[in-house]
Amino acid sequence: MSTGSSLGLGDVEIGDVWTRFMTYVVLTFLVMVNLVPFLFIISVSFTPPEAFFGDPSLVPANPTLEAWTKGFADLRDNLVNSAIIATGTAVISMAITIPGAYAFARKRFYGKKVGFYAIIVAMMFPYILLVIPVMDIWNSTGLYNTIPGMWIAYQIFVTPFAIWILRDFFQKLPQDLEEAAQVYGCTQFSAFVRVILPLAAPGIVAVGFLAFLTGWNDFLFSNLLTTGVGPVPAVPVLYGTIGGGSGERVYWGKLMAETLIIGAPPTVLYLFARNYLENAFAVK
């Protein structure tokens, strides 16, 4: 090769070595930027309150469990609420989106295209705006400050995205599965339930996870649709703890233990669901 940048050294070229080197540098950098904040937080959560004004170090001098026990005690009820809200959100979203996505992927019917684009537009909607009428409607129908109210509200976030992902899974299945099933005596319905659903299980797991994640992670609705007397989930408890300049001393150790407690369940679930998730994001 005559390009100036690559001197031939057998099969290995300087250009390749350089690319390889840069690849490792970039990846190491990104891994550090993602990992180091969490390592710091883990360390801080074991640091006693009085040790905060010293030099930062990754290994605390007199580690204490105080932050963790206090954090758990304060958050217990909210974590239960979060779990109920997120699980319900996932269950309802699957009931809505599995049949819908299946029809949009594999059935022909009048109005299919318009219907699907209505879903896509809903996905691209800056949904924060819906918070205003939803607050008002929930308030006048008694859904405000209730767990079912949260389940329903979260469908606004979940449904369009879930249909988008699931439709793709159903489309990838072999063309004539239903016909074959019907030859063997299945009805349209039993072909769907007994043949298609088991095959689409990876997509269903992915969508269930994303719906749970939405219900667990959201701040907007959980803060605006609940008050102190209602079923407050864990995330909004963190809000306002820094005080927004209220001058109150923050016990950062406890706060950081709480961030880890709240962040752990979705992370653990992710580790279980990740094999299913990787296929879920192909744009087709």
């Binding site: 990846l27 937080i41 701040f219 706060l255």
Partner: peptide, 24 residues
């Protein structure tokens, strides 16, 4: 392992990571 670490930030509630950065 690398993609797993990358996705950590996205999996955790944004308010949690916001709080973490407020400290850092």
């Amino acid at each position: 392992a690398i993609t797993g670490i990358f996705l950590l930030a996205y999996t955790v509630p944004p308010l949690v990571t916001g709080t973490i950065w407020a400290y850092l």
